[in-house]
């Protein structure tokens, strides 16, 4: 219903046979449900991604990707460089908030089943954005080269090395040799500052274009409209400014810290990764290796392909709205329990 109305309205404004100018694109009408915050959560990670690109570029001017210098240069950024601690802090909190809001966004899309027909590509590009963001998180905290970074690199690359067939070449590819070494740090640095940002930027752009082409999710009853520019843009701008204030406050209250330097001879006393890897970390601790690895890979695959799983189950008459609510609640519950377990151990 809503889509028919929106089609009619958009076409009604448009003289037949005349090509659209860029004004029409930025003044596109948005359905009224986009005024409700859960439907706008995607714009927040987008804003934070921009902030991460800027602060990340600044950090590369001081960071040195070699085992002798990496930790030292982070120490220099944190303690000596003018406002270095602030730039590093903004970079750190932007990642935390980007992942947090990506997760909120995923939960909203999952619960409203916005990935249904015509929206599959929105979901697939978005889910890959999430996975690449996790990869950015991992490569990023490896660069700090404190003891948690070092053993994190060891554990994650070993896990990938356990994969059948591709495992061993992948291990050598990531480590640049048999062991975690200076070569590993350089490779992760290249991934974090070159390959993955380009990939992530492309995916984010693709996701936005797909959302723009396919259109927003239909919400029954959402009939009236407001233009993308200026109303919606102003709202997004206000949210972005609010986020910036929040991040600045967080950095002031919790300035970035640095753990003890990497020590290949002694495992860190607490090897807990950042909060967003806390749940998978406990998962691999509690379950035997192959089970943990395959369940994580399987879950990632299922996650990316979920729109098609949904479609098949709907054809068999499953009540997907209820199932999604139950599955969503169960996954969030398990993740929270695993995170609490991690803080206790």
């Amino acid at each position: 219903m809503a889509s028919e109305v929106s089609q009619a309205q958009v076409e009604g404004d448009q003289p037949v046979g005349q090509s659209k100018s860029w004004i029409d694109y930025i003044q596109k009408d948005l359905p009224e449900h986009l005024d409700w915050w859960p439907y706008t959560l995607g714009a927040i990670p987008l804003t934070l991604f921009g902030l991460l690109v800027i602060t990340g570029l600044l950090l590369t001017f001081y960071y040195v990707p070699s085992p002798d210098k990496a930790y030292e240069s982070i120490e220099q950024i944190t303690n000596e460089v003018y406002l270095g601690w602030f730039v590093r802090g903004v970079h750190k909190f932007s990642v935390d908030l980007m992942i947090l809001f990506l997760l909120f966004h995923v939960i909203r899309v999952f619960l409203t089943r916005a990935y249904q027909a015509a929206g599959e590509l929105k979901w697939i590009t978005g889910s890959v954005v999430l996975l690449v963001t996790f990869a950015m998180g991992f490569t990023g905290y490896s660069l700090v080269y404190d003891n948690v970074s070092y053993w994190g690199m060891t554990v994650v690359t070993s896990m990938l090395g356990n994969l059948p067939l591709v495992g061993t070449p992948l291990l050598y590819l990531l480590r640049g040799g048999e062991e975690v070494s200076g070569g590993t740090l350089l490779r992760l640095y290249d991934l974090h500052t070159k390959l993955l940002p380009v990939l992530l930027g492309g995916l984010v752009l693709g996701h936005v274009i797909v959302v723009r082409l396919v259109g927003f999710v239909d919400v029954p009853g959402s009939r009236s409209f407001h233009p993308f520019y200026p109303e919606h843009t102003m709202l997004m701008g206000a949210v972005a400014v609010g986020l910036l204030v929040l991040i600045v406050d967080l950095v002031m209250i919790f300035p970035p810290v640095l753990g003890p330097p990497a020590n290949p001879q002694e495992v860190a006393s607490d090897v807990s990764p950042p909060w967003y890897f806390s749940a998978p970390y406990m998962w691999i601790t509690l379950l035997p290796g192959p089970v943990a690895l395959w369940s994580l890979l399987g879950a990632a695959g299922l996650f990316v392909l979920y729109p098609f799983v949904d479609r098949i189950l709907v054809q068999r008459g499953w009540p997907m709205a209820i199932i999604n609510a139950v599955v969503g609640a169960a996954v969030v519950g398990v993740v929270v329990v695993l995170m609490i377990l991690d803080t206790r151990m």
Binding site: W151, T154, V155, S158, V267, V271, I284, T285, G289, M345
Partner: peptide
């Protein structure tokens, strides 16, 4: 042999312990 962390010898328990995943 799990994921490549380093084990340490615990004299009291007479066991090798890996701190990463217990």
């Amino acid at each position: 042999t799990d994921l490549g962390c380093l084990v340490s010898w615990n004299k009291e328990r007479e066991q090798f312990l890996c701190p990463c995943h217990q």
